[in-house]
Design a protein around this nucleic acid. Sequence first.
DNA 1: TCTTTCGCTACGGAAAGTGTAGCGACCCGA
DNA 2: TCGGGTCGCTACACTTTCCGTAGCGAAAGA
Lengths: 107, 107
Amino acid sequence: MARKAVTPPVRGSRSGRPIMVLLDALGQRWTLRILWELTPGPLSFRDLRERCDQVSPTVLNGRLKLLREMALVEREEGAGYRLTPQGQELGVRLLDLNHWAEHWARD
Amino acid sequence: MARKAVTPPVRGSRSGRPIMVLLDALGQRWTLRILWELTPGPLSFRDLRERCDQVSPTVLNGRLKLLREMALVEREEGAGYRLTPQGQELGVRLLDLNHWAEHWARD
DNA sequence: TCTTTCGCTACGGAAAGTGTAGCGACCCGA
DNA sequence: TCGGGTCGCTACACTTTCCGTAGCGAAAGA
């Protein structure tokens, strides 16, 4: 498919629209979950893995790499991984989503 | 989710927390994109597929089935697929996300 | 030195996604 | 009444991604 792509790895869409880049990244399994688990505070690689239902380290590392490239997550010596300020802004949206989900579950 | 009842497999998490169900569903490829493409208005199966970079009909149908079970999307005779009121609430959040993404892209 | 914990990688098997072809139902104009 | 077009959707073989487990090298105590 074309998604193997020409040059750049944005994979999901060649439109370049930021939302597409975002949707595509968030649409990979565990990405949203990882952000969610990091919103309360920093976590070590292993702890983060545990929170995410023991997701395989291969995938976790891949996602963290992606999220770091997107400047949503960063690694801090000693404290493990944490959201960047930009990542926290996204986290706020996730919290809102959580709020909505609670309500949605009572349909 | 509670809606899908007891036994099976929300796949991502056994916690039952709605946000987990949601994150898991949205974390499947194309799910977020499909919701996004439906926010402006209803689309036929084929049109929707075209908007989603010609995603394979197999996957598209699978996602639509899931989204319908989650009561986020419904099919209307003649008009194709469209968001339910609940789906539209989610769409609002996606629009907000879009707004943020535009800003985020200028990092 | 021995042990523990850290982030992270290797690798083989399993699952999910992809691309193409095409079916049955429906409509519409000839 | 016969194509020809569109609709939603499925079948199926192929490819990519993901998973689960094992384990490495480094660092930090004991």
